[in-house]
């Protein structure tokens, strides 16, 4: 499996990761190795095999849909890098 540098850069953009040129080259090599290893899965015949999205198939119990208080939002806001009053402050989006 050979990856191209432009694919690595495209993936980094999709993942919202700013990578250095050294990181680009490192991941080009390492992701290539890992993807070659996982190629073994292509030899499996899976045409009629259903996918497993989570283990078990045991059903989750139900509960009444009741409202609860989640407590004060103050300690959530205290972790904010930047805020204005009770709001998170972010760069202009639109």
């Amino acid at each position: 499996m050979t990856l191209e540098l432009k694919t690595v850069r495209h993936i980094a953009r999709l993942a919202h990761l700013k990578l250095t040129p050294e990181e680009d080259r490192l991941y080009l090599e390492q992701l290539g190795q890992i993807l070659s290893h996982v190629e073994t899965l292509q030899s499996l015949k899976t045409k009629n095999v259903p996918p497993t999205t989570h283990p078990g198939g045991l059903s989750a119990p139900q509960r009444p849909d009741t409202a609860h208080s989640t407590g004060p939002s103050q300690n959530l806001l205290e972790n904010a890098p930047l805020r204005e009053g009770q709001l998170f402050k972010v760069p202009k989006v639109l």
Binding site: V38, L41, L44, T46, V49, P51, T52, P55
Partner: peptide, 11 residues
């Protein structure tokens, strides 16, 4: 997608 199917076989 293929990994999820392989997961079924392992299970």
């Amino acid at each position: 997608g293929q990994a999820q199917k392989a997961r079924t076989l392992i299970r």
